[in-house]
Nucleic acid binder design. Structure first.
Lengths: 219, 219, 219, 219
DNA sequence: TCATAAGCGAGACGGTACGTCCCGTCTTTAT
DNA sequence: ATAAAGACGGGACGTACCGTCTCGCTTATGA
């Protein structure tokens, strides 16, 4: 009689997991990264601050960065829920999608400005930087970071830009993937390297140039 | 006549510095970062591989990242010297500048393709990623990295784009700083986050979109 | 009911202590002191030889000398147990006491000769010298050394000499403490300063002179 | 033409030696040993405090303990000179010898009391302990310490006791060497191990017991 | 008399060990 | 069985000194 599932040695039983501990670990991890920075955040520190045994962390995550990634996803999930559930009401858990008012430029400006605000939010800054930096150097973490966090967001741009192309607002043959990077790439560049301040005006400027770049050619 | 600078307590005498050791430290640091990655590169490891006492590292640099930054600058300096002194002949030590054949698009394609090649060069990949990531998280290191390495390169774009604007190839009122980010930002984004492969075709595409985006509007 | 003691910050839990590690540390410490001398015995060396992390040493002892003291007490305890449990059989854990055959001179000669043999035993020489020297210079260690090791031994002399005084073999008014030092002091002097070899003959001579010195005066 | 003397490689020229530096080194060494103890006295510390290069120390001494030994001999020499040149007048540099008033007990009491005073003198305490301890553990240093400092002093006892024996105050067949240790051994024992305070009364007691121990037996 | 070579101060160097902080694993006790 | 607690073997940290090795700078001859 085989066991229900392959279950490698030492696979913990997720149904018995303490929700209380998980929450405390997320909170401690995010707080420490914000307060002392990623490098000086330690697993022991997280455990101690969360009032949790070290093993409880190692049982569920393989590394400090993995803890932080989950903590960050949790935070981002909450933030998304808040944004969604705010003025609009109960829309359920499905992805929100970019606004589509028909005015592509206006829609993109709104989204890019929101991104600027989020990147400037001190609550997000430290963990986002920490995870991005870690992903730059650790391909595996980077892949997870991109897949679970970045890619879903970028897909929204792809959808909106594809719709715009079908509406004739974007030239045929333009890869939406590249188009989106024309907007997001410069923003990320400024933010990561701190070469210039990130402002709404900058977001507007990017939208203008990028849209001209991918607009249909006349004649 | 006053002394050049105040000299804080315990400032070592740079004139007595061992050039031999410095070189060995640079080589060891770059080799280790490439071989085992930044996180598993240790000061002890660098010292041991360089055949140097740990104190000789701590005497001249405050941290692992500072060592690597100098090692990298040294490497970049060599590489620049090589590129300069190669086919073109003796041009002296002044900065090279971007090519200006009059064909803005062609010039930018050439430069962006060269950047793609460099980012794909395994000799540069690991240290560049390591320093960028460290700079993302450590503002001070980031500032030095940007100032001493990135900024000079970006200035070349500014110069070339300004010249192009005066030649009427770029619309009046376009900030060259922003224009340049339209090119470099997406490239960096792909490379750092590994979302898509970096190719010459991508570089060409970026040049095309960006130039259209900042081209003069026809009345 | 109050707790036994206040428990300073960072007091490890002794009940969880690894007996295996403690033994290995004792053995390594004694071996190293004997082989390479006290000065060149290092905490790192002990840890490495014992197959133990350094922290396991620093968790339980504040210094190299403290480790050695405990190792030595352990050794002395074993040796005492062996001596006791050897020919005589099961006498239990109580202190042995000096022999009392009625012949004071013979008893003291026996004990002093045994002391000479122990001081000449290469297994004891190095650690005894090391601890004595350290105690000479570090009053706190010296106090512990004296209290836990020397004092109990000296007390045996006090007891025997007091008994002898009551039997009329020692003059009234003689402080047994001083009397004992007349025997032990010269022995220690020779051994510590290596001025002359330590022999049984020397022990006998000391007993003779000292006993005459403290004998009852006739009339 | 052969060189004047075999002169191993790097034998410094003693005639050119800086007296100023030697004095400064002695002073610094003694001061540091007194202030921070032997273990925390370092060659670098001595050099720095003496305003001297490290090499100047290593040129003339092989080790910290050797420096301290010379510093101590210098100090002892001064002290001896002071004691000599004081009330008594100009006796020249030859060794003083123990007093010989004919009253052996009185003479020994005087000398032992002086020894007690010296051992209690804070100026001597730290360096004497340091050198003794070092000699206990390092046979070579110990031998030099004994030979150059202790032995000459003990010889004075030998001389005085030999004279006493010839005067019939000490029993024939008593080894003066052993007799002296009966006096000095207990004193040293108390001082080194700090078992009891060192007082004049104790010195007197020792003299009494020891002299009885070695006195001629009445028929 | 003056170059020249020594001792000297200073301190950089290749090392070793320090005592501390964490890592990730393992074990114990309590819920 | 999970969790809090924390001891364990191990590795790296950044510091303090070790003893050796140049550096310039007196200083004191001896050719």
């Amino acid at each position: 009689m085989p066991e229900p599932q392959a279950a490698s040695p030492r696979t913990p039983d997720a149904t018995r997991r303490s929700e209380r501990s998980r929450r405390a670990i997320y909170d401690a991890a995010l707080a420490l990264v914000t307060e002392v920075g990623y490098a000086r955040t330690t697993v022991e520190g997280i455990a101690s601050r969360a009032g949790v045994g070290k093993q409880t962390i190692y049982r569920w995550w393989p590394s400090k960065s993995a803890v932080l990634l989950d903590a960050y996803l949790d935070l981002a999930g909450q933030a998304a829920g808040d944004a969604q559930g705010g003025p609009g009401g109960q829309d359920g858990p499905e992805a929100p999608g970019l606004p589509d008012t028909g005015d592509l430029a206006a829609d993109l400006r709104a989204v890019l400005r929101a991104t600027v605000d989020e990147l400037n939010d001190p609550r997000f800054e430290a963990p986002t930087r920490a995870l991005t930096a870690e992903g730059v150097v650790d391909p595996e973490l980077g892949a997870r970071f991109v897949k679970r966090l970045l890619e879903p967001q970028l897909q929204l741009y792809v959808d909106r830009l594809t719709a715009a192309r079908e509406a004739g607002q974007v030239r045929d043959g333009v890869d939406p993937r590249v188009a989106l990077e024309l907007l997001v790439g410069p923003l990320t560049h400024r933010w990561l390297l701190r070469t210039r301040p990130l402002t709404h005006a900058y977001a507007d400027e990017l939208v203008e140039y990028a849209l001209h770049g991918i607009a249909p050619r006349q004649a």
